[in-house]
């Protein structure tokens, strides 16, 4: 009996140590050798299970590696504290530069400043911070232009009167607020166009579908839905399809492959494709330029990138947030 217990304990300990060894070995093999010519760039984005951020991260990594850097991708999952901790570790690890899609605008200022003070230049992509002079460049999508064009397309289809619903993305994100404001800047100029409901769908597909379900119960005579981002638009479409409604116009912004497919199917009227890949590539290029010459090569810190209006005519050109017009 004692021998058996002892044996059990021995086996368990052995198993535990073996598993530990296996995983630690696995971890160490993932630690690439630092043979790069140029240096080390860290790419820090939001959750990688979102195709937008995955597209950004992959494009940045590919571009960095093409320029001869070793590139590592990290995710802060929209947690500002985790972002700060990651930047601390990245700087301690000796990175030469950071490409950052930050977790929140004002809360990220301290973290970007920390990196800059430790001689690690930071290029911000997609989301800005409210202070200039800290990051070497801030590349963002022209959300206002994209939203305005989408709203104008919406009006062309829906007409200048009628009832519509707005489902926003996560209003804690500045970009989302910008889009919503831009939509209203256009839509509110038409007094016969009435917004009967506005819900914060958090930028998520399921939440948008559920919100739309509830709204449809109360307002069955709407003619259009304007969505703050891609997943929300797709959620609204799912809800309308489940209810068997086919004559409601839905528009959104983002331009993922799922939205492209919905546009080609005729379920989504229009969207604006944000040039995630181009943004990430340019970010890496400017970082590289700065590391080589001390300047990014651009006269302005904050630079805008155009969102491309996507309708049935040009949806074919969209692939992974890249507009391939040739």
């Amino acid at each position: 009996m004692k021998r058996k217990t002892l044996q059990l304990i021995k086996q368990s300990t052995a198993l535990a140590s073996m598993s530990a060894m296996v995983f630690l070995t696995g971890v160490s093999t993932l630690h690439a050798q630092d043979n790069s010519v140029q240096g080390n760039i860290a790419i820090l984005v939001n959750s990688l299970d979102n195709p937008y951020y995955a597209a950004e991260a992959n494009a940045a990594k590919a571009q960095a590696e093409e320029l001869g850097y070793e590139a590592r991708v990290f995710s802060h999952s929209e947690d500002v504290n985790r972002q700060r901790e990651l930047i601390n570790s990245i700087v301690a690890q000796g990175a030469n530069g950071i490409v950052l899609d930050n977790a929140d605008s004002s809360a990220s200022v301290a973290a970007v400043r920390y990196a800059t003070e430790h001689n690690v230049p930071v290029v911000l992509i997609n989301r800005e911070i409210p202070e200039d002079g800290i990051a070497i460049a801030q590349l963002t999508h022209n959300n206002v232009q994209a939203a305005s064009q989408v709203a104008e397309a919406f009006i062309e289809k829906v007409g200048e009167s009628g009832k519509y619903v707005e489902l926003t993305c996560n209003l804690a994100d500045n970009n989302c607020v910008t889009r919503s404001t831009a939509y209203h800047r256009v839509l509110d100029q038409y007094p016969d166009l009435e917004m009967v409901a506005r819900q914060d769908a958090g930028g998520e597909l399921l939440r948008a579908k559920q919100a739309m379900d509830s709204i449809l119960q109360e307002h069955s005579d709407i003619t259009g839905v304007i969505a703050g981002n891609g997943p929300v638009a797709l959620g609204a479409i799912a809800s309308l399809e489940a209810a068997g409604i086919t004559d409601v116009t839905v528009v959104g912004i983002d331009g993922s492959n799922d939205e492209r497919d919905a546009v080609l199917d005729g379920r989504l009227y229009a969207t604006a494709m944000l040039q995630a890949q181009e943004l990430a590539r340019q970010g890496v290029n400017q970082l590289h330029q700065y590391l080589e010459t001390g300047e990014t090569g651009e006269s302005e810190e904050r630079q805008l990138f155009r969102g491309v209006l996507i309708t049935e005519d040009n949806a074919d050109y969209v692939n992974d947030f890249e507009y391939q017009s040739n």
Binding site: E128, P130, D132, T140, N142, N143, V144, S148, N174, V177, T178, T181, A182, R185, E300, E301, R302, Q303, L304
Partner: peptide, 13 residues
């Protein structure tokens, strides 16, 4: 008139 002179896209718009 450049974007950099404005605090954010909203102000610019």
């Amino acid at each position: 008139i450049v974007y950099n002179d404005f605090s954010n896209q909203d102000a610019f718009a």
